[in-house]
Design a protein around this nucleic acid. Structure first.
Length: 465
RNA sequence: CCAGGGGUGGCGGAGUGGCCAAUCGCACUAGACUGUAAAUCUAGCGGCUUAUGCCUGCGAAGGUUCGAAUCCUUCCCCCUGGA
Protein backbone atom coordinates (compact mmCIF):
# COMPACT_ATOMS: atom_id res chain seq x y z
CA UNK A 1 0.00 0.00 0.00
CA UNK A 2 1.05 3.59 -0.65
CA UNK A 3 3.77 2.62 -3.01
CA UNK A 4 5.05 5.61 -4.95
CA UNK A 5 6.50 4.74 -8.29
CA UNK A 6 8.16 7.28 -10.53
CA UNK A 7 7.44 6.47 -14.15
CA UNK A 8 9.19 9.28 -15.91
CA UNK A 9 11.32 12.28 -15.12
CA UNK A 10 11.69 15.45 -17.10
CA UNK A 11 15.24 15.94 -18.27
CA UNK A 12 15.34 19.69 -17.91
CA UNK A 13 13.75 20.10 -14.51
CA UNK A 14 12.41 18.23 -11.49
CA UNK A 15 9.02 17.38 -12.97
CA UNK A 16 8.01 13.75 -12.72
CA UNK A 17 5.21 11.43 -13.69
CA UNK A 18 4.40 8.91 -10.99
CA UNK A 19 1.86 6.56 -9.51
CA UNK A 20 0.74 6.46 -5.93
CA UNK A 21 -1.21 3.50 -4.67
CA UNK A 22 -3.95 4.09 -2.15
CA UNK A 23 -6.68 1.91 -0.67
CA UNK A 24 -9.06 3.64 -3.04
CA UNK A 25 -7.15 3.22 -6.19
CA UNK A 26 -4.09 4.37 -7.96
CA UNK A 27 -3.38 8.04 -8.27
CA UNK A 28 -1.33 9.22 -11.20
CA UNK A 29 0.61 12.38 -10.51
CA UNK A 30 0.93 15.30 -11.04
CA UNK A 31 -2.59 15.70 -9.80
CA UNK A 32 -4.78 18.34 -8.24
CA UNK A 33 -7.11 17.69 -5.32
CA UNK A 34 -10.34 19.61 -5.63
CA UNK A 35 -11.31 21.09 -2.33
CA UNK A 36 -14.31 19.53 -0.64
CA UNK A 37 -14.01 21.17 2.76
CA UNK A 38 -17.15 19.71 4.22
CA UNK A 39 -16.80 16.50 2.23
CA UNK A 40 -18.76 17.92 -0.65
CA UNK A 41 -17.69 19.99 -3.60
CA UNK A 42 -19.63 23.19 -3.22
CA UNK A 43 -22.45 23.57 -5.70
CA UNK A 44 -22.16 19.94 -6.80
CA UNK A 45 -24.98 17.65 -5.73
CA UNK A 46 -23.53 14.39 -4.46
CA UNK A 47 -25.18 12.30 -7.10
CA UNK A 48 -23.03 14.06 -9.69
CA UNK A 49 -19.76 13.26 -7.98
CA UNK A 50 -19.12 10.06 -9.92
CA UNK A 51 -19.82 11.86 -13.19
CA UNK A 52 -17.11 14.44 -12.70
CA UNK A 53 -13.56 13.99 -13.99
CA UNK A 54 -12.21 14.18 -10.47
CA UNK A 55 -9.53 11.79 -9.23
CA UNK A 56 -8.77 13.28 -5.85
CA UNK A 57 -10.46 15.52 -3.31
CA UNK A 58 -9.39 16.99 -0.01
CA UNK A 59 -11.66 17.41 2.98
CA UNK A 60 -11.04 19.47 6.08
CA UNK A 61 -10.70 18.19 9.63
CA UNK A 62 -11.53 21.46 11.35
CA UNK A 63 -14.74 22.04 9.43
CA UNK A 64 -15.90 18.43 9.58
CA UNK A 65 -15.20 18.38 13.28
CA UNK A 66 -16.81 21.65 14.33
CA UNK A 67 -19.87 21.08 12.20
CA UNK A 68 -20.29 17.55 13.54
CA UNK A 69 -19.97 16.06 10.09
CA UNK A 70 -17.12 13.88 11.27
CA UNK A 71 -19.55 12.20 13.65
CA UNK A 72 -22.05 11.61 10.87
CA UNK A 73 -19.37 10.19 8.65
CA UNK A 74 -18.20 7.92 11.38
CA UNK A 75 -21.60 6.51 12.14
CA UNK A 76 -22.39 6.12 8.50
CA UNK A 77 -19.17 4.28 7.85
CA UNK A 78 -19.33 2.28 11.02
CA UNK A 79 -22.71 0.97 10.14
CA UNK A 80 -21.89 0.06 6.61
CA UNK A 81 -18.29 -0.58 6.14
CA UNK A 82 -15.88 -1.46 8.85
CA UNK A 83 -13.00 -1.35 6.44
CA UNK A 84 -13.13 2.37 6.64
CA UNK A 85 -14.80 3.38 3.46
CA UNK A 86 -16.28 6.23 5.38
CA UNK A 87 -15.71 9.73 3.95
CA UNK A 88 -15.87 8.05 0.63
CA UNK A 89 -19.38 6.89 1.34
CA UNK A 90 -20.40 10.20 2.74
CA UNK A 91 -18.99 12.12 -0.20
CA UNK A 92 -20.21 9.58 -2.72
CA UNK A 93 -16.67 9.45 -3.99
CA UNK A 94 -14.93 6.07 -4.19
CA UNK A 95 -11.53 7.39 -5.22
CA UNK A 96 -8.62 8.66 -3.12
CA UNK A 97 -9.40 11.33 -0.55
CA UNK A 98 -7.05 13.52 1.45
CA UNK A 99 -7.92 15.22 4.71
CA UNK A 100 -6.25 18.38 5.82
CA UNK A 101 -5.41 18.57 9.49
CA UNK A 102 -6.91 21.91 10.49
CA UNK A 103 -3.48 23.50 10.54
CA UNK A 104 -4.50 25.94 7.85
CA UNK A 105 -7.40 27.16 9.98
CA UNK A 106 -4.84 28.06 12.63
CA UNK A 107 -3.78 30.65 10.10
CA UNK A 108 -6.94 31.52 8.19
CA UNK A 109 -9.02 31.99 11.33
CA UNK A 110 -6.07 33.51 13.16
CA UNK A 111 -3.55 35.88 11.67
CA UNK A 112 -5.03 35.44 8.22
CA UNK A 113 -8.22 36.98 9.50
CA UNK A 114 -6.75 39.73 11.63
CA UNK A 115 -4.08 40.74 9.13
CA UNK A 116 -6.29 40.40 6.10
CA UNK A 117 -3.84 38.35 4.06
CA UNK A 118 -3.64 34.96 2.42
CA UNK A 119 -0.73 32.55 2.52
CA UNK A 120 0.92 34.58 -0.17
CA UNK A 121 0.70 38.23 0.81
CA UNK A 122 0.66 39.60 -2.67
CA UNK A 123 1.71 43.03 -1.63
CA UNK A 124 4.71 43.19 -3.88
CA UNK A 125 3.61 42.18 -7.35
CA UNK A 126 6.92 43.42 -8.59
CA UNK A 127 9.78 43.34 -6.14
CA UNK A 128 11.47 46.40 -7.57
CA UNK A 129 8.39 48.47 -7.78
CA UNK A 130 7.89 51.40 -5.51
CA UNK A 131 4.93 50.78 -3.35
CA UNK A 132 3.06 53.54 -1.64
CA UNK A 133 1.56 52.64 1.68
CA UNK A 134 -1.81 53.89 0.59
CA UNK A 135 -1.79 51.42 -2.25
CA UNK A 136 -1.62 48.50 0.08
CA UNK A 137 -4.92 49.31 1.63
CA UNK A 138 -4.44 46.73 4.30
CA UNK A 139 -5.40 47.38 7.90
CA UNK A 140 -2.05 45.95 8.90
CA UNK A 141 -0.25 48.93 7.50
CA UNK A 142 -2.37 51.40 9.36
CA UNK A 143 -2.51 49.59 12.62
CA UNK A 144 1.23 49.52 12.70
CA UNK A 145 1.38 53.23 12.80
CA UNK A 146 2.29 54.02 9.26
CA UNK A 147 0.36 57.16 9.74
CA UNK A 148 1.68 59.18 6.88
CA UNK A 149 0.17 57.79 3.73
CA UNK A 150 2.30 59.92 1.52
CA UNK A 151 5.46 58.37 2.79
CA UNK A 152 6.15 55.74 0.23
CA UNK A 153 8.51 53.04 1.27
CA UNK A 154 10.20 50.70 -1.07
CA UNK A 155 11.12 47.05 -1.28
CA UNK A 156 12.67 45.43 1.70
CA UNK A 157 12.29 48.33 4.04
CA UNK A 158 8.56 48.42 3.63
CA UNK A 159 8.47 44.70 3.88
CA UNK A 160 10.29 44.77 7.16
CA UNK A 161 7.93 47.42 8.42
CA UNK A 162 4.91 45.33 7.68
CA UNK A 163 5.91 42.35 9.76
CA UNK A 164 4.11 41.91 13.04
CA UNK A 165 2.88 39.19 15.35
CA UNK A 166 0.16 40.82 17.38
CA UNK A 167 -3.58 40.50 17.34
CA UNK A 168 -4.14 36.81 16.77
CA UNK A 169 -7.78 36.03 17.58
CA UNK A 170 -6.78 32.45 18.36
CA UNK A 171 -5.00 31.19 21.37
CA UNK A 172 -2.09 29.02 20.31
CA UNK A 173 -0.14 27.08 22.90
CA UNK A 174 2.15 24.12 22.84
CA UNK A 175 -0.78 21.93 23.74
CA UNK A 176 -2.83 22.98 20.74
CA UNK A 177 -5.02 25.71 19.34
CA UNK A 178 -8.12 27.06 20.97
CA UNK A 179 -10.83 28.00 18.48
CA UNK A 180 -14.15 29.56 19.23
CA UNK A 181 -16.96 28.03 17.28
CA UNK A 182 -20.59 29.00 17.95
CA UNK A 183 -19.39 30.74 21.09
CA UNK A 184 -17.94 27.49 22.30
CA UNK A 185 -14.24 27.08 22.98
CA UNK A 186 -12.74 24.11 21.26
CA UNK A 187 -9.22 22.81 21.45
CA UNK A 188 -7.61 21.20 18.46
CA UNK A 189 -4.35 19.43 19.21
CA UNK A 190 -2.09 17.19 17.17
CA UNK A 191 -3.58 14.14 18.88
CA UNK A 192 -7.09 15.24 18.29
CA UNK A 193 -6.53 16.14 14.69
CA UNK A 194 -5.09 12.69 14.13
CA UNK A 195 -7.97 11.00 15.89
CA UNK A 196 -10.51 12.87 13.85
CA UNK A 197 -8.71 12.18 10.63
CA UNK A 198 -8.49 8.52 11.51
CA UNK A 199 -12.19 8.46 12.11
CA UNK A 200 -12.98 10.19 8.89
CA UNK A 201 -10.89 7.65 7.09
CA UNK A 202 -9.28 9.57 4.24
CA UNK A 203 -6.49 7.81 2.39
CA UNK A 204 -3.95 10.56 2.86
CA UNK A 205 -3.93 12.53 6.08
CA UNK A 206 -1.80 15.50 7.10
CA UNK A 207 0.03 16.33 10.28
CA UNK A 208 -1.35 19.12 12.43
CA UNK A 209 0.90 22.11 11.92
CA UNK A 210 0.91 25.79 12.68
CA UNK A 211 0.56 27.60 9.40
CA UNK A 212 2.14 31.03 9.83
CA UNK A 213 1.42 34.32 8.12
CA UNK A 214 3.57 36.07 5.53
CA UNK A 215 3.38 39.03 7.89
CA UNK A 216 4.82 37.17 10.85
CA UNK A 217 8.37 38.01 11.89
CA UNK A 218 11.29 35.66 11.65
CA UNK A 219 11.20 35.14 15.39
CA UNK A 220 7.58 34.19 15.42
CA UNK A 221 7.95 31.90 12.45
CA UNK A 222 10.89 30.21 14.06
CA UNK A 223 9.04 29.54 17.28
CA UNK A 224 6.03 28.30 15.38
CA UNK A 225 8.28 26.00 13.42
CA UNK A 226 9.69 24.45 16.56
CA UNK A 227 6.18 23.91 17.78
CA UNK A 228 5.18 22.34 14.48
CA UNK A 229 8.11 19.98 14.75
CA UNK A 230 7.06 18.93 18.23
CA UNK A 231 3.55 18.50 17.01
CA UNK A 232 4.76 16.34 14.18
CA UNK A 233 6.32 13.92 16.63
CA UNK A 234 3.08 13.86 18.55
CA UNK A 235 1.09 13.24 15.38
CA UNK A 236 3.20 10.27 14.50
CA UNK A 237 3.05 8.99 18.05
CA UNK A 238 -0.69 9.35 18.05
CA UNK A 239 -1.21 7.32 14.93
CA UNK A 240 1.07 4.60 16.26
CA UNK A 241 -0.48 4.54 19.70
CA UNK A 242 -3.90 4.36 18.13
CA UNK A 243 -2.77 1.41 16.15
CA UNK A 244 -1.32 -0.28 19.18
CA UNK A 245 -4.38 0.48 21.21
CA UNK A 246 -6.56 -1.22 18.67
CA UNK A 247 -9.98 0.30 18.91
CA UNK A 248 -9.92 2.00 22.24
CA UNK A 249 -8.78 5.55 21.83
CA UNK A 250 -10.38 7.33 24.69
CA UNK A 251 -7.76 7.94 27.29
CA UNK A 252 -4.96 6.50 25.26
CA UNK A 253 -1.60 6.33 26.95
CA UNK A 254 -0.11 8.64 24.40
CA UNK A 255 -2.33 11.47 25.48
CA UNK A 256 -1.71 10.95 29.18
CA UNK A 257 1.95 10.32 29.01
CA UNK A 258 2.56 13.70 27.55
CA UNK A 259 0.93 15.25 30.53
CA UNK A 260 -2.04 16.91 28.95
CA UNK A 261 -3.71 18.56 31.85
CA UNK A 262 -7.07 17.26 30.86
CA UNK A 263 -6.89 14.18 28.66
CA UNK A 264 -10.59 14.34 27.94
CA UNK A 265 -10.24 17.68 26.32
CA UNK A 266 -8.17 16.19 23.62
CA UNK A 267 -11.10 14.18 22.45
CA UNK A 268 -14.56 14.88 21.17
CA UNK A 269 -16.14 12.94 24.00
CA UNK A 270 -18.10 9.75 24.20
CA UNK A 271 -18.62 9.51 20.53
CA UNK A 272 -14.97 9.19 19.87
CA UNK A 273 -14.44 5.64 20.90
CA UNK A 274 -13.15 3.72 18.04
CA UNK A 275 -10.61 4.28 15.39
CA UNK A 276 -10.97 1.85 12.54
CA UNK A 277 -8.82 1.51 9.46
CA UNK A 278 -5.63 2.77 11.00
CA UNK A 279 -3.18 1.13 8.74
CA UNK A 280 -4.96 2.29 5.65
CA UNK A 281 -3.90 5.87 5.85
CA UNK A 282 -0.76 7.59 4.69
CA UNK A 283 0.41 10.38 6.96
CA UNK A 284 2.06 13.28 5.15
CA UNK A 285 4.36 15.49 7.20
CA UNK A 286 4.05 19.20 6.52
CA UNK A 287 7.15 21.34 6.11
CA UNK A 288 6.91 24.87 7.53
CA UNK A 289 9.36 27.74 7.90
CA UNK A 290 7.68 30.62 6.12
CA UNK A 291 9.76 32.59 3.69
CA UNK A 292 12.99 32.08 5.60
CA UNK A 293 15.68 29.99 4.00
CA UNK A 294 17.31 28.60 7.11
CA UNK A 295 13.94 27.65 8.58
CA UNK A 296 12.83 25.92 5.41
CA UNK A 297 16.09 24.03 5.24
CA UNK A 298 15.80 23.03 8.85
CA UNK A 299 12.21 21.97 8.51
CA UNK A 300 12.58 20.01 5.31
CA UNK A 301 15.57 18.12 6.68
CA UNK A 302 13.72 17.38 9.87
CA UNK A 303 10.69 16.09 8.00
CA UNK A 304 12.78 14.05 5.63
CA UNK A 305 14.13 12.05 8.54
CA UNK A 306 10.68 10.95 9.61
CA UNK A 307 9.39 7.63 8.48
CA UNK A 308 6.34 8.95 6.72
CA UNK A 309 5.06 8.04 3.26
CA UNK A 310 4.87 11.59 1.93
CA UNK A 311 5.28 15.28 2.55
CA UNK A 312 3.30 18.43 2.45
CA UNK A 313 4.80 21.83 1.84
CA UNK A 314 2.77 24.32 3.77
CA UNK A 315 2.83 27.62 5.51
CA UNK A 316 3.45 31.08 4.33
CA UNK A 317 4.80 31.25 0.81
CA UNK A 318 6.06 34.77 1.20
CA UNK A 319 5.05 37.95 -0.51
CA UNK A 320 5.51 37.12 -4.16
CA UNK A 321 5.80 34.28 -6.63
CA UNK A 322 9.52 34.67 -6.47
CA UNK A 323 9.38 33.94 -2.75
CA UNK A 324 7.29 30.87 -3.39
CA UNK A 325 9.75 29.56 -5.97
CA UNK A 326 12.65 30.13 -3.62
CA UNK A 327 10.85 28.29 -0.87
CA UNK A 328 10.33 25.28 -3.11
CA UNK A 329 13.93 25.36 -4.23
CA UNK A 330 15.12 25.37 -0.64
CA UNK A 331 12.71 22.66 0.45
CA UNK A 332 12.32 20.02 -2.20
CA UNK A 333 15.98 19.00 -2.64
CA UNK A 334 15.97 17.90 0.99
CA UNK A 335 12.95 15.67 0.64
CA UNK A 336 13.46 12.07 -0.44
CA UNK A 337 13.18 11.66 -4.17
CA UNK A 338 11.14 8.48 -3.88
CA UNK A 339 8.29 9.96 -1.89
CA UNK A 340 5.43 12.21 -3.00
CA UNK A 341 5.35 15.94 -2.29
CA UNK A 342 2.14 17.84 -1.93
CA UNK A 343 2.08 21.62 -2.17
CA UNK A 344 -0.72 22.82 0.01
CA UNK A 345 -3.14 25.38 -1.30
CA UNK A 346 -1.56 26.36 -4.57
CA UNK A 347 -3.26 26.08 -7.90
CA UNK A 348 -3.20 28.97 -10.34
CA UNK A 349 -2.51 27.62 -13.80
CA UNK A 350 0.90 29.22 -14.02
CA UNK A 351 1.82 28.15 -10.52
CA UNK A 352 0.99 24.55 -11.26
CA UNK A 353 3.51 24.49 -14.09
CA UNK A 354 6.16 26.37 -12.15
CA UNK A 355 5.79 24.14 -9.13
CA UNK A 356 5.68 20.86 -11.00
CA UNK A 357 8.95 21.87 -12.62
CA UNK A 358 10.32 22.31 -9.14
CA UNK A 359 9.32 18.82 -8.11
CA UNK A 360 5.79 19.05 -6.74
CA UNK A 361 3.58 16.02 -7.33
CA UNK A 362 0.20 16.99 -5.99
CA UNK A 363 -1.73 20.15 -5.25
CA UNK A 364 -4.98 21.23 -3.76
CA UNK A 365 -6.66 24.53 -4.43
CA UNK A 366 -10.00 26.26 -4.05
CA UNK A 367 -9.55 28.34 -7.16
CA UNK A 368 -11.43 26.23 -9.70
CA UNK A 369 -14.51 25.88 -7.54
CA UNK A 370 -14.48 29.24 -5.81
CA UNK A 371 -13.91 31.30 -8.91
CA UNK A 372 -16.69 29.41 -10.64
CA UNK A 373 -19.08 30.59 -7.96
CA UNK A 374 -17.66 34.07 -8.47
CA UNK A 375 -18.49 33.93 -12.16
CA UNK A 376 -15.05 33.30 -13.57
CA UNK A 377 -14.80 30.49 -16.05
CA UNK A 378 -11.61 28.89 -17.27
CA UNK A 379 -11.23 28.29 -20.98
CA UNK A 380 -8.39 27.41 -23.30
CA UNK A 381 -8.16 31.07 -24.17
CA UNK A 382 -8.06 32.43 -20.68
CA UNK A 383 -10.49 33.53 -18.01
CA UNK A 384 -14.00 34.44 -19.02
CA UNK A 385 -16.00 36.60 -16.69
CA UNK A 386 -19.69 35.89 -17.02
CA UNK A 387 -20.47 39.38 -15.81
CA UNK A 388 -18.97 40.75 -18.99
CA UNK A 389 -20.36 38.16 -21.35
CA UNK A 390 -24.03 38.42 -20.52
CA UNK A 391 -25.03 38.75 -24.10
CA UNK A 392 -22.51 36.36 -25.59
CA UNK A 393 -24.69 33.72 -27.08
CA UNK A 394 -22.10 30.96 -27.33
CA UNK A 395 -21.25 27.79 -25.49
CA UNK A 396 -18.61 28.26 -22.80
CA UNK A 397 -16.10 26.19 -24.69
CA UNK A 398 -16.33 24.05 -27.78
CA UNK A 399 -15.11 20.48 -27.40
CA UNK A 400 -15.40 20.67 -23.64
CA UNK A 401 -16.84 17.55 -22.09
CA UNK A 402 -18.21 19.13 -18.96
CA UNK A 403 -21.84 18.84 -18.02
CA UNK A 404 -22.56 22.43 -18.98
CA UNK A 405 -20.84 22.44 -22.34
CA UNK A 406 -22.15 19.04 -23.32
CA UNK A 407 -25.62 20.44 -22.73
CA UNK A 408 -24.73 23.49 -24.82
CA UNK A 409 -25.19 25.93 -22.00
CA UNK A 410 -24.39 29.43 -23.28
CA UNK A 411 -22.99 32.47 -21.54
CA UNK A 412 -26.37 34.13 -21.92
CA UNK A 413 -28.11 31.29 -20.14
CA UNK A 414 -25.48 31.06 -17.46
CA UNK A 415 -25.64 34.79 -16.82
CA UNK A 416 -29.39 34.57 -16.40
CA UNK A 417 -29.09 31.69 -13.97
CA UNK A 418 -26.49 33.63 -12.02
CA UNK A 419 -28.62 36.73 -11.81
CA UNK A 420 -31.46 34.62 -10.45
CA UNK A 421 -29.07 32.90 -8.07
CA UNK A 422 -30.26 29.64 -9.48
CA UNK A 423 -28.16 26.82 -7.99
CA UNK A 424 -27.64 25.48 -11.48
CA UNK A 425 -25.51 28.52 -12.24
CA UNK A 426 -22.99 27.51 -9.59
CA UNK A 427 -23.27 23.90 -10.55
CA UNK A 428 -22.58 24.45 -14.25
CA UNK A 429 -19.76 26.90 -13.64
CA UNK A 430 -18.13 24.66 -11.07
CA UNK A 431 -18.43 21.58 -13.22
CA UNK A 432 -16.88 23.45 -16.10
CA UNK A 433 -13.89 24.72 -14.14
CA UNK A 434 -13.34 21.28 -12.69
CA UNK A 435 -13.26 19.91 -16.21
CA UNK A 436 -10.76 22.55 -17.23
CA UNK A 437 -8.41 21.75 -14.37
CA UNK A 438 -8.87 17.99 -14.81
CA UNK A 439 -7.93 18.39 -18.46
CA UNK A 440 -5.00 20.57 -17.50
CA UNK A 441 -3.61 17.96 -15.14
CA UNK A 442 -4.17 15.19 -17.63
CA UNK A 443 -2.43 17.18 -20.33
CA UNK A 444 0.47 17.76 -17.98
CA UNK A 445 0.81 14.08 -17.25
CA UNK A 446 0.73 13.20 -20.91
CA UNK A 447 3.21 15.92 -21.73
CA UNK A 448 5.70 14.69 -19.16
CA UNK A 449 5.38 11.23 -20.57
CA UNK A 450 6.21 12.54 -24.03
CA UNK A 451 8.82 15.10 -22.96
CA UNK A 452 6.63 18.00 -23.95
CA UNK A 453 5.99 19.71 -20.66
CA UNK A 454 7.70 22.95 -21.60
CA UNK A 455 5.69 23.18 -24.80
CA UNK A 456 2.47 22.59 -22.99
CA UNK A 457 3.43 25.20 -20.44
CA UNK A 458 4.13 27.71 -23.16
CA UNK A 459 0.74 27.02 -24.67
CA UNK A 460 -1.17 27.53 -21.44
CA UNK A 461 0.82 30.52 -20.30
CA UNK A 462 -0.12 32.45 -23.39
CA UNK A 463 -3.46 32.91 -21.75
CA UNK A 464 -2.65 32.40 -18.10
CA UNK A 465 -0.11 34.85 -16.78
C1' C B 1 -65.01 69.20 -8.63
C1' C B 2 -64.12 68.21 -3.13
C1' A B 3 -60.99 65.81 0.74
C1' G B 4 -56.43 63.44 1.81
C1' G B 5 -51.52 61.53 0.40
C1' G B 6 -47.40 61.98 -2.76
C1' G B 7 -43.56 63.47 -6.67
C1' U B 8 -35.63 62.52 -4.41
C1' G B 9 -29.98 60.32 -8.59
C1' G B 10 -31.24 53.69 -13.52
C1' C B 11 -35.03 51.37 -9.92
C1' G B 12 -36.80 50.91 -4.81
C1' G B 13 -36.54 54.00 -0.81
C1' A B 14 -34.26 57.50 3.53
C1' G B 15 -33.87 62.55 4.64
C1' U B 16 -38.24 67.27 6.32
C1' G B 17 -33.95 74.64 7.22
C1' G B 18 -27.20 74.24 7.68
C1' C B 19 -23.02 68.18 9.34
C1' C B 20 -26.56 66.79 1.75
C1' A B 21 -23.89 65.47 -4.17
C1' A B 22 -27.83 63.59 -0.67
C1' U B 23 -28.23 57.07 4.47
C1' C B 24 -29.43 52.30 2.65
C1' G B 25 -30.83 48.26 -0.72
C1' C B 26 -30.97 46.61 -5.83
C1' A B 27 -28.98 47.15 -10.54
C1' C B 28 -24.61 48.60 -12.97
C1' U B 29 -18.96 49.19 -13.61
C1' A B 30 -14.03 47.78 -12.30
C1' G B 31 -10.88 44.76 -9.41
C1' A B 32 -9.77 40.67 -6.21
C1' C B 33 -9.95 35.48 -5.00
C1' U B 34 -4.03 30.12 -4.23
C1' G B 35 -4.24 23.63 2.55
C1' U B 36 -12.83 27.63 1.49
C1' A B 37 -14.81 32.80 7.68
C1' A B 38 -15.91 32.95 0.43
C1' A B 39 -22.90 31.82 -4.44
C1' U B 40 -17.76 36.16 -1.15
C1' C B 41 -14.95 40.70 -0.62
C1' U B 42 -13.10 45.73 -2.15
C1' A B 43 -13.82 50.13 -4.85
C1' G B 44 -16.76 53.32 -7.99
C1' C B 45 -21.60 54.71 -9.30
C1' G B 46 -24.66 63.60 -11.40
C1' G B 47 -20.71 66.33 -14.49
C1' C B 48 -15.65 68.17 -14.76
C1' U B 49 -11.52 66.06 -12.52
C1' U B 50 -5.03 65.78 -9.42
C1' A B 51 -8.30 67.58 -5.92
C1' U B 52 -9.83 68.40 1.58
C1' G B 53 -11.73 71.91 -5.68
C1' C B 54 -15.60 73.80 -9.05
C1' C B 55 -20.38 73.29 -11.54
C1' U B 56 -25.33 71.26 -11.88
C1' G B 57 -28.93 69.10 -8.51
C1' C B 58 -34.13 66.40 -4.97
C1' G B 59 -41.53 67.41 -10.55
C1' A B 60 -41.57 73.03 -12.78
C1' A B 61 -41.35 78.24 -11.93
C1' G B 62 -41.08 81.95 -8.45
C1' G B 63 -40.38 83.53 -3.25
C1' U B 64 -38.72 83.69 2.21
C1' U B 65 -33.74 83.12 4.43
C1' C B 66 -26.91 84.45 5.62
C1' G B 67 -28.37 79.39 4.03
C1' A B 68 -33.78 75.19 1.16
C1' A B 69 -34.54 68.42 -1.10
C1' U B 70 -36.51 70.37 3.50
C1' C B 71 -40.69 76.64 4.64
C1' C B 72 -44.35 79.74 1.38
C1' U B 73 -47.03 80.68 -3.53
C1' U B 74 -48.57 79.10 -8.26
C1' C B 75 -48.48 75.38 -11.91
C1' C B 76 -47.87 70.19 -13.80
C1' C B 77 -48.31 65.02 -12.75
C1' C B 78 -49.58 60.47 -9.74
C1' C B 79 -52.42 57.66 -5.92
C1' U B 80 -56.68 56.96 -2.45
C1' G B 81 -61.60 58.17 -0.81
C1' G B 82 -66.18 61.16 -1.84
C1' A B 83 -69.74 63.51 -5.24
Amino acid sequence: MFEFKILKKDKKNKARLAEFNTPHGKLTTPELAFVATEAELRAIPKEFMPKLPVNLIIVNTYHLWTKKIADKIYHLGHGRDLDGNTVHNYANFPKPIMSDSGGFQVFSLGFGKSQGVGKIANIFPDEDQKVGVEVLGIPAARSRGLSNPKRALTGKKLRQNLLFDTGNPLNISDEGVEFTFNEEKLMLSPEKSMQIQQRIGADIIFTFDECTSPLNTYEYTKNALNRTHEWLVRCIKQTRSSQNAGVEVLGIPAARSRGLSNPKRALTGKKLRQVPHLTNQALFAIVQGGEYEDLRLQSSKFMAKQNVPGFGIGGSLGMSKEDMHNILDWTIPNLPEEKPRHLLGIGQVKDIFECIERGVDTFDCVIPTREARHRVLYTKKGHRNIRKLRSFNEVIEKDCECIACSQSVTFVQLAQLFSKKDPRAFFYATAHNIQFYADLMKNIRTSIEHNRLSKLKEKYLRYYQ
